[in-house]
């Protein structure tokens, strides 16, 4: 269980302002735009950065001032940071070697975790020759093999192409029984993986809770980040914009996803996003109806 209380930190151009949240053995995704300071949060929990104020409690133990090597956290940075001079096996085994674990035991554990993450065939490989997705799995194995009290994932899929991304997500779904803190700017990842979800903007955790918070933005900034249409003081999810026959509004752009299209429609000076299976093209005229509107605070 991880408990973060009133955490503040200023580092380079980033800052955390009074961040508090709590997660138990669940998969928590913290969502925020790039440059919001999400990595700083993870680095504070890992002990890489010292906090300016606040407390971090892991499994009832105050780890705020412990060095990283005494925290027992699994950390997978955005670029995986594999040791380039060790092969995949030695990368994964490194933490156990430090703990002076018996050689046979190391061998057994490495093989077990490799099988769990489908990288058994890569163990002898030079990590510099691995693809992004393979490197990601090795980095995950290296962290998980130590049975960490929490797994910290910094944008784990941002450097991967879409197909690999999906397979890593299904790998991540298999991780059970330990808290996972996963930070990302990708809404789909938050929806797919998050048992708990947080929204992080400008150094603040502005919303935290179950997945429903993704459907209920409370202010304009969050609404825009989550992809809502913001009209005056109301947010409307693109799914709640119903396109009907009519002549009132003009389609100004269309992105074709195959089964459905994302259309951009000019509406009273705003550009509104909506999804439809109708065959619409730029210049077509349509009617609109809003199914559900959410009042925004500011």
């Amino acid at each position: 269980m991880l408990k973060v209380c009133n955490l503040s930190k200023i580092w380079k151009d980033f800052k955390l302002k009074n961040v508090s949240f709590e997660i138990s053995n669940e998969y928590c995704v913290i969502l925020g735009p790039s440059g919001a300071g999400k990595s700083v949060l993870i680095k504070c929990i890992a002990g890489i950065l010292k906090v300016d104020s606040g407390r971090i409690i892991l499994n009832g133990r105050d780890i705020t001032n412990l060095p990283p090597e005494k925290r027992n956290v699994g950390y997978v940075p955005q670029n995986y940071a594999l040791f380039p001079n060790k092969n995949a096996y030695k990368n994964i085994a490194y933490g156990l070697i430090i703990r002076k674990v018996d050689k046979l035991e190391i061998d057994r554990k490495v093989k077990e975790i490799a099988e769990f993450l489908n990288i058994s065939h890569l163990l002898d490989r030079d990590v510099k020759t691995l693809s992004g997705g393979e490197q990601q799995r090795v980095a995950l194995a290296r962290a998980l093999i130590l049975n960490p009290s929490i797994l910290l994932l910094d944008e784990p899929t941002s450097a991967l192409d879409i197909r690999i991304k999906e397979s890593i997500i299904s790998e991540l779904k298999k991780i059970k029984d330990i808290p996972v803190l996963h930070i990302t700017h990708d809404l789909a990842e938050a929806r797919t993986l998050g048992e708990k979800v947080g929204i992080f903007m400008d150094g603040e955790l502005i919303a935290f809770g179950d997945k429903d918070i993704l459907k209920k933005p409370n202010n304009r900034k969050v609404a825009e980040f989550l992809g809502f249409n913001v009209i005056d003081n109301e947010a409307i999810s693109p799914e709640d914009v119903i396109i009907k026959d009519g002549e009132d509004y003009e389609v100004v752009n269309v992105i074709d996803y195959g089964k459905y299209k994302k259309v951009f429609i000019k509406y009273k000076g705003y550009i509104i996003k909506s999804f439809t299976e109708m065959d619409l093209n730029i210049g077509d005229r349509v009617g609109l109806e809003f199914r559900n509107k959410i009042k925004l605070s500011s």
Binding site: P67, P68, E69, Y75, P77, A81, F83, P84
Partner: peptide, 16 residues
């Protein structure tokens, strides 16, 4: 040398 590599090593239990 990417500093993240050193960070990861620390989280894996290696002292500075």
């Amino acid at each position: 040398v990417d500093e993240e590599i050193e960070y990861v090593s620390r989280t894996l239990g290696a002292s500075k």
